[in-house]
Design a protein around this nucleic acid. Sequence first.
DNA 1: ATCAAATATTCTGTATACAGAATGCAGAGG
DNA 2: CCTCTGCATTCTGTATACAGAATATTTGAT
Lengths: 230, 230
Amino acid sequence: MAQSRPEAAELPGTPNRIERQSLHDAILSRLRDMIIEGELPPGTRINEGQVGAHLGVSRTPLREAIKFLASEGLIELVPSRGAVVKKFTAKEVRDMIDVLSNLEQLAARRACICATDEGIAGIRALHDRMLDRYREGDRMAYYRLNQDIHTATVTLSDNAALSDVHALLQTRLKRIRFIGHEGPEKWANAVAEHEDMMAALEARDGDRLAAVIGQHLEQAWQRVKEALQE
Amino acid sequence: MAQSRPEAAELPGTPNRIERQSLHDAILSRLRDMIIEGELPPGTRINEGQVGAHLGVSRTPLREAIKFLASEGLIELVPSRGAVVKKFTAKEVRDMIDVLSNLEQLAARRACICATDEGIAGIRALHDRMLDRYREGDRMAYYRLNQDIHTATVTLSDNAALSDVHALLQTRLKRIRFIGHEGPEKWANAVAEHEDMMAALEARDGDRLAAVIGQHLEQAWQRVKEALQE
DNA sequence: ATCAAATATTCTGTATACAGAATGCAGAGG
DNA sequence: CCTCTGCATTCTGTATACAGAATATTTGAT
């Protein structure tokens, strides 16, 4: 969806400015999306020939992408039997959220100390846009901005390793969060929590921000957990 | 498999025969080791033909391993220019240790609550063996048991996601720690810190254990940082 | 009709082939 | 002597080929 296949990507005039996305990356995001959005449900065995044909590429680059995603933890490699979309248990999800919460809290404290005012303003901008989507009831756009805010907050902490591992867990959880359609009142709560977060960040109150984030993610778990009884 | 052709590629020397244990995994560990042990120093461009020949495998599975390690962050992919061994700056290392410390502290608290007595006894066993190696002055074996202890402690916390991200950072740092040859007195300090950790764990004193771990890793940074000015 | 063995088919794992990009080299021109 | 340009070489990225394992299907016996 986001990126179609990059073949007709020639613009007259400015060949420099356009970063040609390598096929490798294209396949990677496409496959990732297919998993996250449920097109390839957990437990599915990935048939290389089939998926490759569907994507219009040969097995070689596809397999490379599969290996990459296996390292990300979205795919499981079964010897001599190929690749399977990883299935997460409720406990695994709970654990992931637990770690994610810890990481974001660490990031929050750091960010409150070392973030620039511009950086915080950037989050505010995302936050406001997210509120707009909320008012419009655009769940998908809201959801995306929500993720962006969390990511951007971690980025503010200016710690590449932290950003890396956070992104890793967030990716694994994306699929899950995709499922949790919360009712209106829970959604409202989530928005309220974000308001608190925003205020704490702008006040550079690291402890308070960390606390709110912990609470927020605990709520996220509550919102998601019943959807996992299967 | 690699050995399907018995004699074809038998070159004088047969440099590094890959044993059969799912060739994929074998190549993976071998490559990882080559990077960690400095056989492929940071910044090195990985020549697929060369390395492949050296390992006695074709480029296809090698490239897959490279993609996997790229996702682990040990290798950087440069479009149309192949793979380069990732070079970490001093700040990046500092940041990694920072996150690692946080993760281990989280694990420590959890482990003190939910670990079994057998699990703790297992750590004790590793600990004692490590002390033996220390007395013998066997740095390499000491180093390895040291890593094992940290890993095992995290495992005790019974949180797969936590183990995952911890392992990820630990792997990235292995190369670095490989360098830091600490003098006798620093080594003694490290051992003393481990004694503290062990005691705190056996007392199931999560706060104390977390504190000691934080201190231990801060020291580890001190021990390593001057080796990074280059 | 059911189950088991044998066979056919599919799929993965690895190697090889080939095209295009990047790099190195050499000779021409300043 | 240096630099620029064109050519040769090397290397990466992708597709294809092939062998062996896994799976599905058919066949034979009870």
